[in-house]
């Protein structure tokens, strides 16, 4: 079953130069798709269009067989509830003035009326926050802390907990490990992998690190200068018909 389809997406910031040029992709239920490329290749722009942060110039995003451009209020709300995100910089992703518990509860409080959670159970705010912290392997005592009291890796775990708190169908991971130190990077990748096992959502994992993408994803897409060059299954990475640029990337790692 397809969770989301992107058809011929185009986006440009400067006239004459397309940041994303005619990209089509689809993500299946429970699948993680890796999107690899250098900085400036358009992968983050694509994510921003998907999340509705940027308006696309042309193309369509289809969710639940419905282009979200034509979605009514209710459908749009349903889309937002099912597409969550984790950004690169965990410090910027958490409001420094809010306790961890309040940041964690943000999506739940927003969507609580149309949620039917399977994995988590909401009995009280306190209990819900504890379930979330436990799921991302953080000590329960962190609920009442402020973000600056946590390490980078811990903060990123909090933003992951926030994204999974409403059991979305898709999480857009925009370079979630890029600003962490090596040991935290590995741990976060492992956590993301095991969360997918238990919760069964799909990932769009955006990264410049082909090896990290390889570790987490079943399918890999390669972008360069706004264009989608290559999409392949993980097992096919060493096939001879890979794009030259993909081979160049493989050679680096």
């Amino acid at each position: 079953m397809t969770v989301i389809e992107i058809h011929n997406l185009k986006k440009s910031y400067n006239p004459g130069k397309l940041a994303v040029n005619d990209v089509s992709l689809s993500i299946q239920k429970g699948e993680s798709l890796g999107l690899v490329g250098e900085s400036g290749c358009g992968k983050s722009t694509l994510a921003h269009c998907l999340l509705g942060v940027e308006k696309m110039d042309a193309g369509s995003i289809v969710y639940n067989e419905e282009p979200i451009a034509h979605a009514n209020r209710k459908q749009l709300r349903n889309y937002r509830r099912n597409v969550q995100t984790v950004f690169q910089n965990p410090t910027a992703s958490l409001n420094p003035k809010l306790k961890i518990r309040d940041s964690l509860l943000d999506p739940y409080l927003q969507f609580k009326d149309d949620l039917q959670l399977k994995h988590f159970h909401f009995t009280s705010k306190q209990d819900f926050v504890q379930q979330l912290l436990e799921t991302v392997e953080l000590p329960k005592g962190l609920a009442d802390r402020y973000p600056h009291e946590l390490s980078g890796g811990q903060k990123q775990r909090v933003t992951i907990a926030r994204a999974i708190s409403i059991e979305p169908k898709l999480i857009v991971l925009d370079e979630p490990t890029a600003s962490l130190d090596v040991l935290s990077q590995g741990a976060i990748l492992e956590l993301l992998g095991s969360l997918q096992q238990t919760l069964g959502m799909s990932y769009l994992f955006i990264s410049h690190d082909l090896a990290a993408v390889y570790q987490l994803c079943q399918r890999i897409a390669v972008m360069k200068d706004g264009e989608l060059l290559d999409v392949f299954r993980k097992e096919e990475i060493y096939d001879s018909n890979r794009h030259d640029y993909t081979k160049e990337l493989i050679d680096i790692f």
Binding site: L51, R77, T85, A92, S93, N95, S103
Partner: peptide
């Protein structure tokens, strides 16, 4: 301009 506000917007707050 910070990401946490962007994320709140993505969530439709």
């Amino acid at each position: 301009r910070k990401d946490y506000v962007t994320i709140a917007r993505i969530n439709g707050l």
